[in-house]
Design a protein around this nucleic acid. Sequence first.
DNA 1: TACAGTCGGGG
DNA 2: GTGTACGACTGTA
Length: 748
Amino acid sequence: MNEFSGWMFDLYDDPARGVAVWWITDDGRRLCTGHAFPVRFFAAGGAARLAELAHWLNRLPDPPACRLEEQRDLFLPQPLTVLAVEADSPTAQAQLFKQTERAFPDLTYYDADVATPLRYTARFGAFPLARCRVQLGAEDEIERLEVLDERWDLQPQPAPLRVLELEPDCNPASGTPRALLAHCGRHTCRFDLRQARATLINLRGLLVQEDPDVILSEYGDTWLLPELLRMAEEQGMALPLSRDLRRKAAHKKELTYFSYGQIVYRGQQTLLFGRWHLDRRNAMLWDDYALEGALETARITCLPVQTAARTSPGTGISSMQIVTALQNGILVPWHKQQAERPKTALDLLHRDLGGLVYQPRVGVHGPVGAVDFISMYPSVMVKANISPEVPLPNGLEPASDQPGLIPQTLAPLLEKRVALKRKIAALPKWHPRRKRFEALASAHKWLLVTCFGYLGYKNARFGRIESHEAVTAGGREAVLRAKEAAEDLGFEVLHIFVDGLWVQKPGCSTPADFSPILDEILQRTGLPAALDGVYRWVVFLPSCQDARVPVGNRYFGVFQDGSLKVRGIEARRRDTPPWIKAVQMEIVQHLAGAQSPAELPDFLPGALSIVRRALAALSAGRVPLADLLLAQRLTREVKDYTTPSPAARAAAQLEAMGKHIRPGQRVRFVWTRGLPGVHAWDLPTPPDPAEVDCVRYRTMLLRAASTVLQPLGIQRETLYQYCCGAVEQNLWQIPKRLNPQLQMSYLI
DNA sequence: TACAGTCGGGG
DNA sequence: GTGTACGACTGTA
């Protein structure tokens, strides 16, 4: 009897065997098995129409089994009579459904377009990298499958992955790579790309001898792998990138789509079979932890690792919801058919999208405690049991104690994240495991964040706009209760922003001084809150347009451990050149030396000299061009701009060189003098340093500097005169000591 | 001054 | 394949 235990590695449709499942066994083998996997989809509609469908199916050359059943549609109170159609394999199901839908477009379909790995998890409990015990039959097909661990384990036994790293010697977007660097185990090789044949032979040697599980690349999706496959074709050679030799690499086309209110560009992808290809540059947010992040996202979402690594907002959480639905015997709608319930005037009256934002008290404050709800919106969904099929809660009070689909999906994820956070807090900053946990926590974070928005998305399978609104209402309720809690404990609430409160009380300066608030908040809301930290000082900035108007999301400060937090200012923006970011952060870092608001003026002279030195470096041409680069996203085709943005003008330059930039792609450029005012970075010729628009960069720097210096009484004009004007610097009286309270009223 | 275009925010 | 906010801010006409 062939039995083994190991990690589930990869899974995909296999027309002949049902699904192909790859394993890394405990004794180190890489094994491909088949698994018979008949799957069903359902059709709903009038009885007569369903009978016609059954008749039509029976007359197909290879008629599938079908029968009438009662199933549950999440949005319907009563069970629904459906025709269940069973196909021999996922491949057959996809084909059969396509035919069926074409012949009977008027019916409502369920479980029709569910990704096979999700069905597999729902049926057998196995997920990517699950530890399993497997019993095989004579043809290496799975006969019995026992899953030994859970998606929610904090420290699953790591699979012994063999990694081959591949990267070109430069960014193919801006130059022509000459060499390919390969790193695998003990070997590091450099292949000359101009010698195609030798490179391919060597690379094939590496693949065969080392048999890596993962190809971890830079630019592998957008350039390297397609290029290698093209070279192989040209040379008439086989390049076994996929471990499954029957399968070639799969290519997914580039795509531009709307998400999160903006256009997103996703480059093309190259996916392998029996081996993973992960492109570090194409993995969502993880950088150094591309692999860890992808593995965790795969465990949680049940999506294959290669998909999980590249998946876009919504897909991950949607996958989790689908798995929950399948496990609970709830039908998964094909597309989304639910229309919004018409709203009453009263609904509209109560309707206020978004979070609660207070007007902060502008100026310098300290010490200040920052209290945040932990994953507020997901916590609200779980606490108030908000789900499309559950009656709406009253504030934070759930209308039913039978957990809905969404809370069921979220609760274990939230728990896992909180447990991770707790572990992170207990580990010292340098600890390697802390880094790992942080990578995992950040993988969870955006799944949770997306889940909230996804509730309100009209095309989500399990979304409902009213639920979405109930979440924001619950959030506001929670924050208001938190405010009352803090005030009842004698704290002054300086500012509220969506899920965070900034509070202050004379004599309170240590975390312990603020912790009673956390308990009180938990008491009154049932939601967990945490102390983000205690600020030595924090500055809430006024609007740039009107210094009398505070804005909720522009602030910066320094915590007692010396770490900085800045929000909404230039340094946080992705269209700010690195040089400007760096100087602005250097100023804040310098100001961080102040232990209290009262000490801040002592650090003004140093801050001003940072600005002067930076400007001197700029005019002396000592700032590297790369540090003056900025990137902006195209929001439409270049020709569709009425007034071309700088990015559009840079894109036009690239277009003239035959390089088309798609909406959603970022364009990098430097500001230059004269017209068109920009020089695209990815042009074959770099900008002439003499062309750089130094005046503009100086203005931008002064603007960024004055943002962080204005609480010290330095206005933009003053800074300009001081740094660039004719006034001798030593004639300037630097204010020695400002009363922060006075300063505050001045700014207000 | 008005309008067009881009960004953040959740951590 | 999946959030078509909302408001602050900057650049251009």
